[in-house]
């Protein structure tokens, strides 16, 4: 078994992974129901690069092709990339923070809170739009934040948070949220299918507005997670140990929880509940590069982004023109891969 790649090797690997991510994203732009030639795709993309645009003409390419590339495929790829990176980074951080291999972005009820928020918006048939975001997304975000605040306050004794209580409270609130979602679905059966589809997650309605809202959350959030990676390493070996090594454990925990919650809430409210990415990608890379968050986190971010772009491309291409919910793809293709990796790592330990 690998016990952590160090130094040069991990540097080379991460560059390879970034190249792979770019390649996957490009490939995703070429694939789709509509038949648009590779050359045209390139011309359209280059035309939209500021400064370069004037030299590349897109004459002769139908408007619909330009709209498909710029407003559909490109926004989907970018959104999938951002959400994948965010959820995977949150998963990696939470697994360390709680020293719990099952930790993932939905653990503290954030996803179910977003689901309830979205359900209420769909239930009420809300139609307002703020900052280019639909009522469903805004309501989902509010639901997520309220849920995490409730869970946090349940598990808090003074300034201390007990991870066990936090996880239990999160699970309990999740069940309650799901129950309310189901109740609401019964009362608005005509909207039931939309609620269900929302909870399965999708990038169908991606758009530049969603990307612009997500970017500040992710840039700020991921930077903070990266800055705290070394502290988190120490916390992952035990909270008392971390405290005796001079880390203000409760403060770091609060900061990381807040950041994780905000990233998750932003991701889930723009794209619905996409499971699995946050659970599996960090584990996969932990098996490959070891548990050091300073190395693992960048891998998780890039790996999560690449994984979700692949899954979303499959979601749109496999059953074209029908779409498969991306959450189903992540589980169907992710699980066997993950299980294979588990078996292999088990074997090499024994």
């Amino acid at each position: 078994m690998f016990s952590g790649l160090k130094g040069k090797l991990s540097g080379v690997l991460i560059i390879a992974l970034i190249v792979l991510l770019i390649f996957i994203s490009a490939a995703s732009l070429f694939l789709g129901t509509a038949n648009i030639g590779y050359v045209d795709v390139f011309r359209i993309l280059l035309h939209h690069i500021p400064g370069l645009g004037d030299q590349i003409s897109i004459d002769g390419i139908p408007d619909s092709a330009v709209t498909i590339i710029m407003k559909l495929r490109l926004t989907r790829v970018i959104l999938a990339l951002l959400v994948g990176a965010g959820l995977s980074a949150v998963g990696s951080t939470m697994q360390c923070l709680f020293r719990n291999p099952m930790a993932e972005p939905g653990l503290l009820g954030i996803s179910s809170g977003a689901g309830l928020g979205a359900t209420i918006a769909i239930f009420l048939g809300l139609n307002t739009t703020v900052f280019g975001m639909g009522a469903t997304a805004i309501s989902a975000f509010i639901g997520a934040i309220i849920t995490i605040l409730i869970v946090y306050n349940i598990s808090r004794t003074g300034p201390k948070i007990s991870p066990t209580v936090l996880i239990l409270a999160g699970t309990a609130i999740s069940f309650m949220n799901s129950a309310i979602i189901q109740l609401l679905m019964i009362f608005r059966r005509d909207r039931m299918d939309y609620i269900m589809l929302w909870t399965m997650g999708s990038f169908t309605t991606s758009g530049w507005n969603k990307i612009l809202i997500l970017i500040p959350f992710l840039v700020a959030g991921l930077s903070i997670l990266l800055l705290y990676a070394r502290q988190l390493n120490v916390i992952s070996t035990g909270e008392e140990t971390a405290q005796s090594l001079g880390i203000e454990v409760e403060k770091v925990k609060r900061i990381l929880l807040a950041v994780c919650s905000l990233i998750t809430a932003a991701c889930v409210s723009t794209s619905g509940i996409i499971g699995f990415v946050g659970l599996i990608i960090p584990h996969v890379f932990r098996l490959i590069v070891g548990p050091d968050q300073r190395i693992l986190l960048p891998y998780s971010i890039i790996g999560g982004a690449a994984f979700l772009v692949i899954c979303d491309t499959l979601a749109r291409v496999i059953a074209s023109p029908a779409e498969i919910p991306v959450g189903a793809i992540t589980a169907v293709f992710g699980s066997p891969f993950f299980i294979a990796l588990l078996i292999r790592s088990k074997r090499s330990v024994m």
Binding site: G4, N233, S236, T237, S244, G246, G290
Partner: peptide, 25 residues
């Protein structure tokens, strides 16, 4: 510095990684 009664580390750090954590402060 404190050497606790029992240590339970779930993650696959190397021995050197763990000792390096002593440098944290």
């Amino acid at each position: 510095a404190l050497v606790p009664q029992s240590t339970n580390i779930d993650f696959d750090f190397t021995v050197e990684d763990i000792v390096m954590m002593g440098r944290t402060p």
